[in-house]
Each structure stands twice: as C-alpha cells, then as structure tokens.
Amino acid sequence: MSPEEVKHHIKTYIIVFVALMFLTVVTVAISYLDIGVVPGIALGLFVASIKASLVACYFMHLIDERTTIYWTLIATAISFLILIFLPIGAMLAQARVY
C-alpha cells in the first residue's frame, strides 16, 4: 500500500468516524420516538446494522478483502442466522396444549 493510498484511507476513517458519532446520536434519538415496540426495535437494529457495516467495511477493511475471508464470513453469517432464528422460531411454533 503506497503512502498516498494510506493518506486516502485516513480521510475515509475520519469521515466514517463522524458518521458513527452522528448515527449514535440518531440511535438514541429514535429510542425516544413513540412508534411502538416492534417498529422501534426494527429501526434501532437497522441503524445499528449501518454502524456495524461501517466499522466492518472501513475499519476492518472488509470492503476490499480477499475471497477466502468472504467465504469464511458467509459461512459464519449463515450459521449465525440459523442460531438466532431457529430457536425462537421453534419456540413461537410451540404446540399450545393448554
């Protein structure tokens, strides 16, 4: 990586930093909106996901990474989604015998 590229990167880091600060304030602000529990959770997680993607893409350089790492993360993401959604799915579909 040439010094020019690094300097360019540093500019990106500063922009991302400002964006993260701003989005943190947004996250807190929307928690005061009275839009009901489910939309509130959805919106809150949506903003958190944007922040997380910013960190992952720019600070962790995922925007420009190698195929091997992408494959690893795809496998991880799939098993993560299974872990999150299948147990709760199973619980919500629990037979109600009472």
Partner: peptide
C-alpha cells in the same frame, strides 16, 4: 489486534441499542 478491537467495538454497537434502548 485492530481487527479484534474493531470487533469488540462492533459488538458494543449492537449491545447498546439492544440492552439500553429497545
């Protein structure tokens, strides 16, 4: 080390709304 540190940050980015705000 940075990769690890950003990950710890990333976890907090989710913990914060999930525990405190929602």
């Amino acid at each position: 080390v940075g990769l690890y540190w950003h990950f710890v940050d990333l976890v907090w980015i989710f913990l914060f709304p999930v525990l405190y705000l929602l």
